[in-house]
Design a protein around this nucleic acid. Sequence first.
DNA 1: TGTTTATTGTGACTAAAGTCACATTTTAGG
DNA 2: CCTAAAATGTGACTTTAGTCACAATAAACA
Lengths: 234, 234
Amino acid sequence: MQSIDFPFDKFNFNSDSILEGLPEEDVALLTKSMVTHSYKKGEILFRDGSYPTGIYFIKKGKVKKYKTDKEGKEQIFYVYRNGEFFGYHALISEEKFTDTASTIEESIISFIPKDDFLQAIQTSSILSNRLLKVMSHEFGVLVNGLAVLAQKTVRERLALSLLVLRDKYKKDNQENKPVELDLSRDDLAKFVGTARETLVRLIHDFKEEGLIETNGRKITLLKPLDISKIANLY
Amino acid sequence: MQSIDFPFDKFNFNSDSILEGLPEEDVALLTKSMVTHSYKKGEILFRDGSYPTGIYFIKKGKVKKYKTDKEGKEQIFYVYRNGEFFGYHALISEEKFTDTASTIEESIISFIPKDDFLQAIQTSSILSNRLLKVMSHEFGVLVNGLAVLAQKTVRERLALSLLVLRDKYKKDNQENKPVELDLSRDDLAKFVGTARETLVRLIHDFKEEGLIETNGRKITLLKPLDISKIANLY
DNA sequence: TGTTTATTGTGACTAAAGTCACATTTTAGG
DNA sequence: CCTAAAATGTGACTTTAGTCACAATAAACA
C-alpha cells in the first residue's frame, strides 16, 4: 500500500476542534436542550433559502452540503463526517441558509437549538474564539475549492476528490485498512463538478490504469500516491 | 437608465461593518500602531504561502485576491474596495495565507500589526462578535461563488461579474451617475474565470446587443436589468 | 427468489470554451 | 509628441466536457 503525505487540511473544515477541551460548563450549555435523531439516507436537514433554527453535530454518518441551480443541477461543495458541526454560519450571520444539507447515508445527528447556541457563544469566549478560528480556516478551504474548480481539469479534480473522500470514509480506528468510498456515481460527479457520464468514463480509466478498484458502487484507492500525482496540486 | 434590484449581498463580504459603531477604545486599540501607505497599481501586499504579519484596511483604491496555480493561471475570487478589511483569516487561523493580494489601481492602505489586532479581538467582545458575523456571511459568499463557477456558463458569469463589479466601482457619493469599470481585460477574464480571448469575444457580443459601452478598456453598463437577466440567477 | 426499479456504463454526437498565431489599438515613458 | 511596449481584438482550429439515447447491472422489495 502506498502511503501518502497530502495536505488534507487545505480541503477539510476543522469544526471538530470546536469541542476539544471545551470547559464542562460550556459543553453543558450547548447540550442543555440537545436532541439526537436518526436519519435515513437522503433526508434533508435544511434547505437553501430557509431560516436556521439551530446547529447540527454528526454523531454517525455523512452529510452533503450543496447548492442546486435553476435547472436543478446540483453542486456538492462539502461532505461532513462524524465529529463535524454544521449549520452555524447562517445562524450567526442572521441570514437564510445559503445551501442545502442532506444525509448521504444513515446517520445519527444531534441538534442544538438556536438560542442555546447563541447564548453559549455569548457566554463562552473560549467557544467564540474557537469558532472564529474554525471559520478563518474554512475561508481558506473554500478559496482552495474555488481555485480547484476554476483551474483544474475534471481528471485532476476527480483524483483530488478521491483522496479527500478517502480521508472522510476512513474509519478512525482502522488506520491502515483499505478504505471503501461508498457514494453514488451521481453524488461523486456532483462533488467533482462534472456530468455523471464523464465521471463514469474517468473511473473506468483510473481502473484500467490500476489506480483504483471497484466493487459495485464502492471504490477502493490502490495507489493514492499516483492518484495524488494526477491531482497535480504542486 | 434601468434600475435594478440585485442581491449584491450574496457576492460581497461585508467587512466594512466591522468598524460600524465600534467603541472608541476598541478603535484606539486597533489604530495604535496603524501605518498607512501608498501603493502603485500592481503591488503585492501578501503572497499565498507566506505568514501573516497584520491586517489591511483600504482607505482608497482596489485590491484583488487571487490564487495562482502551478501553470501560472490566476483565478481572482474577490475584489476589495475602499472601506473593506482583509488579511485577517490567516492571522486568526494561525496559518499561512491561502491567497495572494495585490492592488489593481493606485491605493492607500492601512496596516494594523498582528499583535494589536489579536489583542483587540481578545479584549473586545464586540469586535470579535462582529468578526464572527462577518466571517459567517463570507462563508455564504464563497459558497455562492463556488456554485457560480460550477454551474454557470461563461456568458452568465460575465453578466454577473459586470454587475458585481459595477457595485464596486460605483462612487459612494454619486448614486445615479454612470459607472465605468476600469480594469484590464486580463483581470476581468481572471475574475470571470475564463480565457482572455473568450472574454473579449463576449464583451464584443454584449456591445452589439447594446448592453454595454466601452471606451478603451473602460466598460459602462447601459442595461443592467437586461444584464441581470443574462446572469440567470433565479 | 423473481421481478421491477434505480443505478451504472457505453457509444455517437454536439457544444462550449480554450489555444495559438497574429493584427490592431492603446498607453506609458522618454 | 513620438515611439516602443503593452494591451486588446480577431480568425482558425483543437480540445474538453456535456448531452442524448439506450444497454447492462445492481439493488430493492414484494
